[in-house]
Write a protein that binds this DNA or RNA. Structure first.
Lengths: 336, 336
DNA sequence: CCATGTTTTGTTACACGTAACATTATCATA
DNA sequence: TATGATAATGTTACGTGTAACAAAACATGG
């Protein structure tokens, strides 16, 4: 029997056991199922645990059972409101199920994505929820070798590694563009930032709708992050390149709101002079004046579903549906 | 020597070693310092690693060296914009330093905080960044027993467990209230949601400023989360309880913006009829029309500093400064 | 070609909790 | 009281990477 540690390392089961005068196995039993231990020991062990402030250590479990009870969640960004809501959805399911989420983000960089996935796997996550539909060969290999369930979210079109839950961004953008055209808009400009896969899909949908109606698309693009300020800047650019612009469709609400404010400052009336539409339908778009036209996406539900399907897979169930395509909704608001 | 695993478990160092025909120790050496291994083996091992798609496993390290290279970050909420920016600050430092952040949140519940901290510690995090200044006895005990550096953020007033980095919320609220009064506001109402420690400090500051100017404070409170909609609801309540309200100071920008929109809808002119101020100075408050009066807080810097000080502590340096009080800034905007 | 030093590779043990098996204590019943 | 059954506790081994030590392979100089 070892003497209780003198170094001020955090206490182990052995330390607790030494204090009580039993083996660590007995303490371990108490922790998993107190009934398995004699009544007098139960109190003694409970006291010792309390005394020493014992905190369990997951490392041996991860080591021997390859079960960490942690789920890796990898998203392009954490500051984007969209992902914050997805996370909320994920956690609302995982947390009550006793899983810890390990959150990581990669700032839309493919190399960073590789390294983040490697890190998450090195911590032995039991499953992974990742974003985007395009992944490098290396990432695909790592995921296949890891042998854990993987769910891709945000996009419902590209063939998933195993299972995808998302929306059809292209169809959503097509629908909104079509809607604007029906409302009489002709010179609609698309504002795009952060040129990821989803944005490209949206641009495709926008261009298809314009084309189908015999209209000329004009798309302002940048690789930098979207912001209110960027929306304002884009508005200026749009009016310069196409002075008779009568509609603006933005890849997200932030750009749309920024453009809308810029219009207000410039004395351009919305929706009389220019109609503006956003994408996602965040809280603010549902509260502002005028109410923002937007595509409402089920962000929180997407997270919830992803977590639910992941848990189901962890319980041994097979992939029930490779692609889950969630509905979006066109919200007319007052800005169109 | 073991025969390579037939089960499709993820490959271990042993699998790689078997493939090359050396011991795992040699492979381990190659991973840590390739020079330590003979040149012909270097390529062979590299190939084998690539072939098998080897992903390192941190569990043994956590077990034997108690070093996870992971930092726990525990915040009350993830969806709140404030914390998103704090996280960005934290990650901007930790990620390049090779640390993985383990993010958790507790929805402002003290019991949840306890359990999240226990979880984070059970994963062997090397350090902890937590929010709020009040913690249960249990939490304090766990942290002391864990023996890892802990940094508290958001608040710079309460005596920290070890080290705190934040702002003086009470002073900030006092300053903004004083500023509104100087601008001629007399019947200022405070909107408070999510009654956490920081909100209580802000209310104190507001009430002190009102009192020092011989004015009667009126504070609308709720425990639920803040939102634009709540700001609108509070505006209605305020006008009902005090019809001649001429100023509104909100515990955050969301409430303020919600109130501002509600004014616009109700035909109340801002700032002519009512002055409105928020707290934090998020992007949108700096872009909207009218520009929102707000207290600008150094959210991202707070995160950066917390991470930097934590890293310094991990390198063995002592606490340099128990409390780091960051400056805030009164932004007049156009809504006051 | 030997002795010595250096480089390269191998061996052993360890961190901690628990499954699986082994042993001891306790109890009821013949 | 002896016996078998059951309850309570103990022992051993394991998972994976690496530090510490040991051994082997190789190089250098006399």
């Amino acid at each position: 029997m070892k003497i209780s540690n003198t170094k001020n390392k955090r206490p182990t089961l052995q330390d607790v056991a030494d204090l009580v005068g039993v083996t660590k196995m007995t303490v371990s039993r108490f922790l998993r199922n107190p009934e398995q231990v004699s009544v007098p020991l139960q109190t003694k062990i409970a006291d010792a645990l309390e005394d020493l402030g014992y905190i369990p250590n997951r490392a041996p479990d991860i080591l021997s059972k390859s079960k960490s009870h942690a789920i890796g969640v990898l998203l392009p960004s954490l500051t984007n409101q969209v992902f914050a809501e997805v996370i909320r959805g994920i956690e609302s399911i995982l947390e009550p199920a006793g899983y810890q989420t390990m959150l990581a983000h990669y700032g839309y960089s493919k190399e960073a994505e590789e390294s983040r996935i490697a890190t998450l796997l090195s911590y032995g996550v039991d499953g992974l929820i990742i974003s985007e539909s395009y992944h490098t060969e290396r990432v695909r290999k790592m995921l296949s070798v890891a042998g854990i369930p993987v769910i891709e979210i945000m996009d419902s079109v590209s063939p998933p590694i195993e299972q995808a839950i998302g929306i059809d961004n292209q169809a959503a953008a097509y629908a909104m563009t079509q809607f604007m055209i029906q409302r009489g808009r002709q010179k609609i400009v698309y504002f795009a930032a952060r040129m990821d896969q989803r944005t490209l899909f949206k641009i495709k949908g926008y261009e298809a709708a314009m084309h189908d109606n015999g209209l000329a698309p004009l798309c302002l693009k940048t690789n930098s992050a979207s912001s209110f300020t960027l929306g304002a800047k884009f508005l200026k650019d749009a009016l310069q390149q196409q002075p008779d612009t009568d509609g603006i469709f933005c890849t997200n609400d932030d750009l749309a709101i920024g453009a809308l404010y810029a219009c207000q400052k410039a004395g351009i009336k919305v929706p009389e002079d220019i109609g503006i539409a956003g994408f996602h339908g965040h809280d603010i778009s549902r509260a502002m004046v005028p109410l923002l036209a937007t595509v409402i996406t089920p962000r929180e539900e997407m997270g919830r579903l992803a977590a639910e399907h992941l848990l189901s897979r962890l319980q041994g169930n097979p992939v029930s549906q490779r692609i889950i395509d969630l509905p979006f909704q066109i919200e007319a608001g007052e800005s169109i």
